[in-house]
Computed example of a mutant assay.
Amino acid sequence: MLRLLLRRFAGALVVLALVAVLVFVLTRLASGDPVALLLGDQATAADIAQARIRYGLDKPLTTQFVLWLGELGHGNLGQSIFLQQPVAQALVDRAEPTLFLALFAVAIAALIGVPAGMAAAIWRGSAADQAVSTVAMLGASVPSFWLGLILIQVFAVHLGWFPASGYGDPGTGFGQRLVHLALPAAVLGLLNSALIIRFTRAAMLDILGEDYVRTARAKGLAERTVMLKHVLRNALVPIITVIGLTVALMIGGTVVTETVFNLPGVGNLVVRAVLRRDYPVIQGTLLVIAAIYVLINLLIDLLYTVADPRIRLEGK
């Protein structure tokens, strides 16, 4: 078990190192000068040159990369060019909406996806199965911005049940903030439930054909006991995988939804940083998101050992 985790951890470090290189190179390949955007059209060449020296952009790319790695080694993600604050602080300030949006949306996706996938597998080939599969296909193909605009029009404009955008005033309570997250969470939850439905259905169908399921039914066990104890429990590994990956996708992929609903989250921060060519913010944010992906994958590996003891034995 320990050896398995050490291998996973070593692989995670390699992934983060590759991400750091790719993020640094790709941000520098993008057109546009952040200093020129910061100073505006009235800035002279001397002003731009002086600002480039101040932010270390006059140095060779290899030197900039080494300096950035040195800062990362000390736990510093860099200093934002436009926000004039540490990147870590900018992320902390905007983490709450993104984090709660992701968790809220994953809860909705799981509560819809797992039961619907189970129902589709149990009544395979029936009208219910066809209906669930059709809804899953629609959910996988509908653009998030379109669904967001539809929900805003219906539930915010016409019915007035939820706010159309924003995250509330600075003094707004936590309950009211969750109300602001209801529509964007519904958008992400509904769309991502499609993937959970398909994975749950496929995993359940694989287990339903096993001999021990037929044996359990032959013993006269209640169908509910067979489904929950023998089928769902043994199908948990792929279901845990897809739910864990959905969490990671939510955290890293809320850019469009946060833009549509004007949420002051990490996705909105990344969009503004890209438009401004704010290299430190882009680099730091993408590296943190990659680290979250890696951490979630490690947690999924740990959950595997809980869901299936055979995996624990194989890791020894």
Results as ranks from 00 to 15, higher is better:
28 R>V: 06
23 V>T: 06
80 S>Q: 03
311 I>S: 06
148 G>M: 12
172 T>W: 01
40 G>N: 09
67 L>W: 12
260 V>G: 00
198 R>Y: 11
244 G>P: 10
32 G>I: 11
232 L>M: 11
316 K>M: 14
219 K>S: 12
265 G>N: 00
59 K>G: 09
306 V>I: 14
143 P>I: 13
230 H>N: 09
11 G>R: 10
94 R>H: 04
165 S>L: 06
156 A>F: 02
191 L>E: 00
279 Y>N: 02
289 I>C: 08
262 N>C: 03
167 Y>C: 01
116 A>I: 11
28 R>G: 08
205 L>K: 06
316 K>H: 14
47 D>F: 05
283 Q>H: 11
133 S>C: 07
198 R>N: 09
102 A>E: 08
78 G>N: 01
198 R>K: 14
274 V>C: 03
99 L>Y: 04
70 G>R: 01
273 A>K: 03
217 R>W: 11
219 K>I: 09
74 H>Y: 07
12 A>W: 02
263 L>C: 00
56 G>I: 02
297 N>P: 04
161 W>M: 12
73 G>W: 08
238 P>T: 09
108 I>Q: 13
173 G>I: 03
142 V>I: 15
257 T>E: 08
35 V>I: 15
165 S>M: 04
62 T>A: 15
135 V>I: 14
222 A>L: 13
44 T>H: 10
